[in-house]
């Protein structure tokens, strides 16, 4: 059954990462990864976009153990599942079928690659610390967040935001039909005239199960759901 699930994932272009279909250890995984990269390089167009919400079912998820997130660009029409990059990585790196990566640190978005207007890097150390404190009931002062982008002259564009968390409410959310008890926390950030609001649905163990996080001025908010 597990094999069947994996096969369907592969064929359905939901999880194109071949390594995810293999149980082999590091070196072979890396070779498969290379094959995957080569196939992406050689492909002129990625196949028709499939909405994973319509294809993936709860039973498929329950039988798999590959870490998986669902990512949706909220003001665009892009939605995809990304699986954990095989092997060791700095932070959590999620890889899409068409060769993009999203990097999170304790569930907080810190970088993307392959998305054209990428988030090149971020400093979320203070945000991670403040979120922990906020959940445990402490009222935290403002914290600092740094975002780095690529300006058109190929120099860095670093923006510093001042942010504050606020605890909102207990909420049961459903991810592919499965309920999760969470605490909803919002984070309001401001820099000059620029403002955004992130929302996190955090489980009791501190895991961010679902979030809406600001990527940047071009892409806006993205939804990240931790599926597996």
């Amino acid at each position: 059954m597990e094999m069947k699930l994996r096969t369907r994932f592969c064929l359905g272009f939901i999880l194109l990462l071949l390594a995810a279909c293999s149980s082999k250890t590091e070196p072979s995984q890396e070779l498969l990864l290379v094959e995957q990269f080569k196939s992406i390089f050689n492909k002129s167009e990625v196949g028709e976009q499939v909405n994973p919400r319509k294809v993936i079912t709860r039973s498929m998820i329950d039988e798999s153990n590959i870490p998986l997130v669902l990512i949706e660009i909220l003001n665009g029409d892009q939605i995809a599942t990304l699986s954990a990059f095989p092997g060791s990585t700095l932070n959590e790196v999620w890889l899409s079928a068409d060769g993009r990566t999203v990097t999170t640190q304790n569930g907080m978005l810190i970088a993307t690659r392959g998305m054209n207007y990428d988030l090149m890097g971020a400093d979320v150390g203070a945000a991670i610390y403040s979120l922990e404190k906020t959940i445990s009931g402490k009222r935290e002062p403002h914290h600092r967040r740094l975002f780095k982008y690529l300006a058109a002259d190929n120099q860095d564009k670093i923006i510093e935001f001042s942010c504050v968390f606020s605890k909102e409410s207990q909420e049961t959310i459903f991810i592919f039909e499965k309920p999760y008890k969470t605490l909803r926390v919002s984070e309001n950030c401001e820099s000059g005239g620029l403002q955004f609001k992130n929302t996190y649905w955090v489980e009791k163990n501190g895991m961010i199960r679902k979030s809406q996080q600001w990527h940047g001025q071009n892409i806006g908010l993205i939804l990240i759901e931790r599926v597996i």
């Binding site: 390089f41 092997g87 993009r100 990566t101 392959g114 207007y117 058109a152």
Partner: peptide, 22 residues
């Protein structure tokens, strides 16, 4: 306008991520 690339800053594939230092 050099500061306004018509197709954005770059649509290349993501580079290979780094490993953790162990």
């Amino acid at each position: 306008d050099p500061k306004d690339p018509p197709n954005g800053p770059g649509r290349e594939l993501a580079p290979i991520p780094l490993r953790q230092k162990v």
